[in-house]
Design a binder for these strands. Sequence first.
DNA 1: GTATCTGCAAACTCTTTGCAAAAAC
DNA 2: GTTTTTGCAAAGAGTTTGCAGATAC
Lengths: 146, 146
Amino acid sequence: MEFSLETLKQKLCDREYKLTPQRRIIMEAFTRSPEKHLSAEDIYGMVKKNNPEIGLATVYRTLDLFAELDILQKMDFGDGRSRYEFCTSEVHHHHHLICLSCGKVMEFGDDLLESLESTIEKKSRFRIVDHELKFYGYCAKCTASK
Amino acid sequence: MEFSLETLKQKLCDREYKLTPQRRIIMEAFTRSPEKHLSAEDIYGMVKKNNPEIGLATVYRTLDLFAELDILQKMDFGDGRSRYEFCTSEVHHHHHLICLSCGKVMEFGDDLLESLESTIEKKSRFRIVDHELKFYGYCAKCTASK
DNA sequence: GTATCTGCAAACTCTTTGCAAAAAC
DNA sequence: GTTTTTGCAAAGAGTTTGCAGATAC
């Protein structure tokens, strides 16, 4: 587990937030999940198994809080729901491959955009703070099964 | 106007769709708009002025139809609503600059991603059909007014 | 004439919010 | 003890759908 509960507690306390069981449970679900790009509903489904009393609204609030604390990054893959993934320092330097057939999201780490960014900043007088690159297509499995 | 009503009629008839006043009006609103990235609500607001009887559902249905006919391209800038723009052959080769302050969307035409795509296709066995590159930041106007 | 299309209202999905009860510190 | 947090249900935004009447061809 790359992200310890201690770190979570630290980050919460720094901002006067409390470490509640729900927040701990949601964080644990995240660290345990093999899939890294999770929606609120995904998390809700995972935590409800062992903690049926937890509410969907709490999941939403917790994910938003974690995003505000730079623990998670909120992302949008255009399917009408937000997804969250751990906000590592590399998160801005990998790109997403989104399968149009099965919806799977893969990552491709490689940052070729730094030079493009500075070109744009000069030409457009637009101050870039983040970028997002997505490739849509068909994963190997879906290509094979057609 | 780059896109004539004749072309629209042609494309519709080819697929056994009819050219209705509503479809014509919506297409005209699109060609007349200085802003190129329009939401359903944007279009609805524009057409309602002269045609108050037109329904929002019709706007949605028409935009989706146009997208299916490759007349418009449906896009998602992460603000919770879909936007549409004319689907020119260059549409896949320009990228978007999205201002986090005023929400304005600008374009940056330049395609440096072809070589990156073939690298990814080889390394990941992922067949790419489209890509999308967005830069988030602050436009010149918003940077100045801060 | 007939199949398509429209407008309306209701339904739907994802997300947010108001509030009283519960819990962290 | 007090402030934060929770669960619930209701509201909210954007979009879709069912249906009866209207319309393009």
